[in-house]
């Protein structure tokens, strides 16, 4: 009997430890330094596709053979001591205009003079196979005490490879490739992503496109699920 009790107590201890880890018990002091707490290792682990832009590049085009991706964009910024904000904008279909989170979505390495931005690109952004993302960056040169604005445009093209022939590669899209949809678990990912999407922000034409795809693929009864597509 005592043995059983010991085992139970051991299990309880394990659960308590797991629960504390889950609760993220905070032992920090009341004062802190924001920059010291940024976990750079975690940040650089997140990117699944890496591109680099030099300072003079204002427009860049990127082909992605598979989505979803988290694209890590490295941007050279000279004579900069601090990046004050990074705004991500997409105005064609998705109506994104948001401040990226410092430490989670962008990081500035003042020693290298390089800004790193993580752009989350789910499949639900690629019903038109292409999105144009603008990054508005405000940096500060503390020696000269002036700000500098930069706008970088990055065109992301989704080019899923569906076949090869004698001439070259054949790329598909959501409208026609059954093979692609099955191989890359497209439907499964789309349904998962839609639950995490602020779809009310998308423009009506784009929402219709999503709804038509869902209907065509028999993924959901639109009339019975007004919350997913309004």
């Amino acid at each position: 009997m005592i043995k059983i009790l010991k085992i139970i107590l051991f299990i309880i201890c394990l659960f308590q430890l797991a629960a504390c880890a889950k609760l993220n018990v905070n032992t920090r002091s009341t004062m802190g330094n924001f920059y010291e707490r940024i976990n750079t290792k975690e940040f650089f682990k997140r990117g699944t596709f890496i591109i680099t832009l030099d300072e003079s590049t204002n427009i860049s085009s990127v082909s992605l053979f598979q989505v979803p991706q988290i694209v890590q964009v490295g941007i050279d910024i000279s004579e900069c001591d601090q990046v004050l904000y990074v705004n991500m904008i997409e105005k064609n279909y998705l109506n994104i205009n948001r401040q990226l989170l410092m430490g989670k979505e962008y990081l500035f390495d003042s020693q290298k003079g390089k800004l790193f931005v993580l752009i989350d690109l789910p499949i639900v952004y690629f019903f038109k196979n292409r999105i144009d993302v603008f990054l508005d960056i405000l940096s500060l040169n503390t020696k000269g005490r002036f700000t500098k604005t930069m706008r970088k445009k990055i065109i992301f093209n989704w080019k899923p490879l569906v076949a090869t022939d004698t001439i070259g590669f054949v790329y598909g899209d959501l409208s026609h490739s059954q093979e692609l949809i099955e191989n890359q678990k497209i439907d499964e990912n789309i349904l998962k992503e839609l639950k995490l999407t602020a779809i009310e922000r998308f423009n009506s034409e784009y929402k219709d496109e999503i709804a038509n795809y869902l209907k065509k693929r028999n993924l959901i009864d639109i009339n019975q699920s007004p919350n997913i597509i309004k």
Binding site: N26, R28, F34, Y85, T142, R145, T147
Partner: peptide
């Protein structure tokens, strides 16, 4: 009551941002 802080140097042209 946990506090985090951040200081940003003011520049001459910072107001509009």
């Amino acid at each position: 009551g946990i506090m985090e802080n951040i200081g940003i140097p003011l520049s001459r042209d910072i107001e509009k941002h």
